[in-house]
Design a protein around this nucleic acid. Sequence first.
DNA 1: AAGGCGCCTTTACACCATCTTCACAGGTCG
DNA 2: CGACCTGTGAAGATGGTGTAAAGGCGCCTT
Lengths: 119, 119
Amino acid sequence: MEAAPAPEILRVGPIEIRPAEYRALAGDQMLALTPHELELLTALARRAGRIVDRKELYEVVWSRELRPDDRSVDVYVRRLRAKLAKELPGWTVIHTHVGFGYRLSPENSHVFHTPATPE
Amino acid sequence: MEAAPAPEILRVGPIEIRPAEYRALAGDQMLALTPHELELLTALARRAGRIVDRKELYEVVWSRELRPDDRSVDVYVRRLRAKLAKELPGWTVIHTHVGFGYRLSPENSHVFHTPATPE
DNA sequence: AAGGCGCCTTTACACCATCTTCACAGGTCG
DNA sequence: CGACCTGTGAAGATGGTGTAAAGGCGCCTT
């Protein structure tokens, strides 16, 4: 048989993304993301730790030019943050760099993240 | 000659499939499936827990390329769901991931482990 | 040979998730 | 304070999926 190309697996902090499977995990929970949300997260993860401007993010995710007053990236960053926060309470994952763009680098505020079993 | 390979038996939650015998069980009841229904269920079961897109499902089950507006997979997923629901009331077996595809992972519609999100 | 039956394919329409866009609130910096 | 940037919520547009059903075909029964 021939060798299948290694399926890409991106790991950044508590986040794991498998683009080929349309899947992203936070901790060990699967994130229910929409297509654009997943692509945006993937784009950020591939550039983890670096500041990425909106133009680049938009062009990678939407495959077209960013128009002057388009706020799509902001809106999707917000949705991503909401879904990430739900699975990763106490973490700050996407950082805003005013005037420049966004940066993915998960930081733990200090919280003990034990999957407590409330009973 | 080499030994006969162990006949494949797929078990996923309350579902058991024996492709070699052309049969599938839900709970202890035998499912009356048509050939394509069985193949679709088998394809999903072999990829249980993962999101599988329509293109892959179609190519595996129908052995040809998926045409642009073909809805066959959706139609067969519906029929599968109907037959599964009949034998497994209260279970959600096939999950839809809008924009991506389907995922087989039987879940009892009972309590989830949702870390308290009172709203 | 004719009819009945089951399976497959395709289509049309209803419904719902996602996407796009907007208005306004809040924040930062000079 | 004023200018600019980002956060937020929400509405309408778009597009994907759920659903029902008709028609074709082959096979079995009579």
